[in-house]
């Protein structure tokens, strides 16, 4: 899927997901909140589901495939989980780990 110049993240970037539990609809699964992961690829550009669910106008913005190590999400497991997340849910993970 084509990247755009104003995309905030690129494949390989380390990111951290939002911790807050929003009052309404969201597509950031609970198990992936406050978690560290890595951008795999861009999954297109789409209006934010949280805003559409509230009847708000929403500009398309980047959605990413983000890979998490199971041990980081659940404290156990040797597999990976790839979750598809809007850029709004993500911030750069500056911490060295």
């Amino acid at each position: 899927m084509t990247d755009r110049p104003d995309d905030r993240f690129a494949p390989g970037d380390r990111v951290r997901t939002r911790i807050a539990d929003p009052p309404g609809h969201t597509r950031l699964p609970r198990y992936a909140r406050g978690a560290r992961g890595e951008i795999v690829s861009t999954a297109g550009h789409h209006p934010l589901a949280d805003e559409r669910a509230r009847g708000l106008a929403s500009d398309p913005r980047a959605v990413y495939h983000v890979r998490f190590a199971a041990s980081d999400l659940f404290g156990a497991g040797d597999h990976a989980v790839v979750v598809e997340l809007w850029e709004d849910y993500l911030e750069p993970d500056g911490s060295a780990s």
Partner: peptide
């Protein structure tokens, strides 16, 4: 996933990594 796959009769070698894709957005 390894335990769930086992319930489905899929026994993977320990050396095979498993990746689970959660369809949480538009794909």
């Amino acid at each position: 996933p390894r335990a769930v796959l086992r319930e489905f009769g899929v026994e993977l070698p320990a050396s095979t990594r498993i990746t689970v894709w959660d369809a949480s957005a538009e794909s």
